[in-house]
Write a protein that binds this DNA or RNA. Structure first.
Length: 599
RNA sequence: GCGCCCUUAGCUCAGUGGAUAGAGCAGCAGCCUUCUAAGCUGUUGGUCGGUGGUUCAAAUCCACCAGGGCGCACCA
């Protein structure tokens, strides 16, 4: 998707001015009135030698105008040269138009970064209807949603952190986001949980329960549930009929499991706005309403599905007429059963009330990150949302690939029996919350990831978390050092700095890199790709470290110039700008920027 | 058999339809009388899996093929 949002950032602003210039030429009769400007982009060039802002306008317009790109560019140049702040415009390569700005322009940009503080690049939600289409949306982001039949495990980490950071990112990009956890507390597996807990209850009362029977959950994490039941109910549950016992134990056990899960989420720094109970939805009518909606749209019928194509075709599969949802109408490759032959609702049917309640709440988009092992369900989820909303509400299901946990290159086996099982709490304990969050985003979400605990613990350049944190700490250190060396700068008035003193190429290049942040933030949000942020922060950190080291060889390039308070103050603004961008990015990642690295 | 994801430097991976495809690691050669060397500089290394197509322009979009991963119930 070409990304030229309105004047939220330098490139959007330039794009608007270029488009205005083109329309001006059109109005003046120098360009044909029917000429369309689709496909014109305004971007940072990949190489610095190619200028500071580039547009492909001349190449795009060359064909419809029947002229060579360079001839088109020559036609545009006189107008483009008049854009505010532009020092030079040149045509290069196959027909790019490259802009360069006066240093004063970049000083102005740095001033904006300073004023924006550590929220530089963030957009505030606009009033609905007052913004361009698709710009600011009301988004529901359902993530984690671990079944309340057991604690979280490390397989849930990537999805949890991806979802949480995506929410931060979408909010920073000006959207309204609700983080939702859907609690599957109504299905058969919750009854299994209750029976398993009841067994632990009997165990807690001193009974020898022997081996856990097949079909019940064996985990030790249910022992405390049994004990808690004893504390609350004594021996009273033993004599109840099973349905009454289950009516008590089911909600109790679910609540206990949610307590475990929420504790892990809290230590990860993952916060949800609401927890929606499946059982609660069923009390309020459940599937009735969405079923009606589908029926009225003629999306439900009785029919027979072809046999499963899997190699391991289950031997007890028999063809039979079922209640089906016409999900193929919305892009699924097969219609899906809503009712089983025994009359029970299917899994996909069970999720209809969830999707329906979100649609009723008026979201523009429903985002549901899933593990890649659920890839087969994406099409039917998308179809269900489209069907229930008459195609108006878009469901997106980004897939997160598997994470392999390693220790010095050796695979950590996830076997519960082998005793090498690692819990969420252990991973956090091992590497720290901030490193965990950062590194879980150091790959694109749909790429498999090797997570080496030893490498993440390491404090060296090889560890990008550390590298970025070090850059932020270094910024803070400069302020501390300045205060010490130059007492008059202990409380520097950065707004009063004379930024025209910043003249070195490497300094101006760093300012240009910083001005790319708002655009990068928007692109990451639009593409639902939070991993772009740590990569960008790594680049900013590298630029700062490089600049720092220039001062090692050339004293005059150091940030702190004891004999020149004005220059020092101006350079402190640059350092503050770097710090603002790093802090703004780390805040989206949910990582605390450290002020010092001493340990 | 079908569907989804992936294939980019020796390794692990970035890459927004644009100009000479990048980073880290590994390899090689350098920088500490220092605003923290927990860092920096230089350098070696590529038929972007293959073949076609769309386009002024393709690692990027489309089709087909090959290889790898995941999934393929009326279970959750």
């Amino acid at each position: 998707m070409p990304l030229n949002p309105s004047a939220d950032n330098l490139f959007g602003l330039m794009h608007q001015q270029i488009m205005a210039a083109l329309k001006g030429l059109q109005a003046a009769g120098q360009l044909p009135p029917e000429l369309r400007f689709d496909g014109i982009n305004t971007e940072p060039p990949r190489e610095q030698a190619h200028g500071e802002v580039a547009t492909n306008a001349a190449m795009v317009l060359a064909k419809p105008l029947g002229k060579a790109p360079r001839a088109v560019a020559d036609l545009l140049l006189p107008t483009l040269q008049q854009i505010d702040g532009v020092a030079a415009v040149e045509v290069a390569g196959p027909g790019f138009i490259n802009f360069r700005f006066h240093p004063a322009f970049w000083h102005g940009q740095l001033g904006k970064i300073l004023n924006a503080g550590d929220r530089y690049g963030y957009l505030t939600p606009l009033q609905k209807g007052a913004q361009k289409e698709g710009k600011s949306e009301k988004i529901n982001l359902e993530f984690v949603s671990v079944n309340p039949t057991g604690p979280m495990h490390v397989g849930h980490l990537r999805g949890a952190i991806f979802g949480d950071v995506l929410a931060n990112l979408l909010i920073a990009a000006g959207n309204q986001v609700c983080r939702e956890y859907y609690v599957n507390d109504a299905g058969n597996q919750v009854t299994v949980l209750a029976r398993s807990s009841f067994l632990r209850y009997r165990e807690a009362l001193g009974e020898d329960i022997g081996a856990i029977p097949e079909g019940l959950y064996p985990g030790d994490y249910l022992k405390p549930v049994g004990e808690a039941l004893v504390q609350q109910h004594g021996r009273a549950l033993l004599t109840l009929p099973e349905d009454q016992m289950l009516a008590i134990v089911r909600p109790f056990a679910v609540a206990q499991m949610l307590t475990l899960i929420k504790a892990d989420l809290a230590s990860l720094g993952v916060v949800h706005d609401i927890f929606t109970s499946e059982a609660g939805l069923y009390e309020k009518g459940g599937i009735d309403k969405p079923y009606q909606v589908l029926e009225q749209a003629d999306l439900i019928y009785r029919g027979t599905l072809p046999p499963p194509k899997s190699k391991k075709v289950s031997p007890d599969w028999v063809p039979g007429e079922l209640v089906l949802m016409r999900s193929t109408r919305y892009g699924d490759d097969q219609d899906r059963p809503l009712k089983r032959s025994n009359g029970d609702w299917t899994y996909i049917a069970g999720d209809l009330p969830n999707t329906w309640q979100k649609i009723e709440r008026g979201f523009d988009a429903l985002i549901v990150p899933l593990g890649v092992d659920h890839a087969g369900y994406v099409a039917r989820f998308e179809a269900a949302a489209a069907a229930l909303s008459n195609g108006k509400v878009r469901l997106e299901a980004p897939l997160t690939a598997l994470v392999k946990f390693l220790e010095n290159g050796a695979l950590k086996k996830m076997s519960k029996r082998g005793g090498t099982f690692i819990t969420v709490a252990e991973v956090i304990e091992e590497v720290g919350r901030d490193s965990l969050r950062f590194m879980m985003l150091w790959r694109k979400h749909n790429m498999p990831m090797d997570f080496d605990l030893a490498a993440v613990r390491e404090q060296s350049r090889e560890n990008p978390v550390f590298y970025v944190q070090y850059a932020h700490a270094r910024c803070c250190s400069v302020f501390r050092q300045a205060a010490e060396a130059m007492p008059q700068l202990a409380q520097p008035d950065l707004a009063a700095a004379d930024l025209s003193l910043l003249t070195e190429d490497s300094v101006l290049a760093l300012i240009r890199l910083l001005t790319q942040w708002p655009r990068l933030l928007m692109a990451a949000a639009v593409e639902r790709e939070p991993h772009r942020i740590p990569y960008y922060l790594y680049e900013v950190a590298g630029a700062l470290h490089a600049l720092w080291n220039e001062g090692r060889e050339e004293t005059l390039l150091r940030f702190i110039q004891p004999t020149d308070p004005a220059l020092t103050l101006a350079r402190l603004v640059l350092v503050q700008g770097v710090r603002n961008v790093l802090a703004a990015g780390l805040a989206i990642l949910g990582v605390v920027p450290v002020e010092e690295l001493r340990s």
